[in-house]
Amino acid sequence: MVKWAGFLFNADDCIHCKACEIACKNENQTPTGIQWRRVEKVAPELYLSISCNHCDSPECFRVCPERAFTKRKDGIVQIDEDLCTGCGLCVTACPYHAPQFNPETHKVSKCQMCYPRQDAGLPPACVEACTTGALSIVDLNQFSDPEATRTLPGFPDIRITCPSIVFYPPKPRKRYFL
């Protein structure tokens, strides 16, 4: 069976340390403000580490007039910056704010799931950097776990694009507040 590369994000294990976000910048040397990956607090005690989700039905791919986006057999969505004219249609179309417009170059760039690393058998930089193992990659054609969910509260509607990401939600905890 063909591989379907996707992210697995364990919200229960994520500590919001942002190592994934900065490791992405370290690997790809993206300028300040170009956030291929970012960690966000979406609700009290709920953090999401989000990049391009390499959707099964990518809106960026659909709306781009220059056909700058391609989807590899393993599902990774790439952008060819040489074809990008900076029209910004993908930026507004993507529910996850994955395409990042650079006002200096007038080009859009985004997470390419570190495909050169993956092709060399290495995990994406963000996954390698995750000290708790909260972020990992899985083959969604193989992955199955009844405890995993397709979405989490605070994550944009998945019905439009069918993002290649699955989640483990936070578990309930016991607290005594003052």
Partner: peptide, 9 residues
């Protein structure tokens, strides 16, 4: 094999 965000910067 991991660093923190500051280290990666």
């Amino acid at each position: 094999g991991r660093l923190c965000a500051k280290g990666y910067a």
